[in-house]
Amino acid sequence: MRSLFISFVLLSLTWLLLSGVYKGLIMGLGLLSVLLTIYFVRRMDKIDGYTIDFSINIFKLLGYFFWLLMEIAKSNIEVVKAIIKGDNHINKKMFFISTSQRSDLGKVIFANSITLTPGTISINLENNQLCVHALNFNEASTKGLEEMDRRVKNIESGS
């Protein structure tokens, strides 16, 4: 019931922010569209039997988002330096890191954050083990990834 309410609010907000036409007819059609979308999504959830567990704290997620933007800016500088220096000064390496998040969504947020920061790319996510490829591997990069892992674990709301 709670997930139904959350998806209704999110989809209605999306419609209102996209639309910009606040007339009765269009708003009514918008309500119909939101209901139709919820019908399809519930049907898909029921048929494939895989629902996403939304145990995420929204405010912590926002804080994490801004921290992630800072990280992206920092690592962009590193990769731009590497591009300017050229092929001979890079130290590519593929390594494994373990994920400590409970839900699938947390793991996916962690993998996506790794890919979003240039210089590290997540390749394969399987059984709490994440295969990561780094452009310039050193000791600090594993430390940074461990801190990111801890922060993503932090945004999951405890049950």
């Binding site: 989809l11 999306t14 996209l18 639309s19 036409v21 059609l29 918008g30 919820i38």
Partner: peptide
């Protein structure tokens, strides 16, 4: 997928 369906309906009615 939900947002994509909603976006399709938005394009439809606007």
């Amino acid at each position: 997928v939900g947002f994509i369906i909603l976006f399709a309906l938005y394009v439809q009615f606007h």
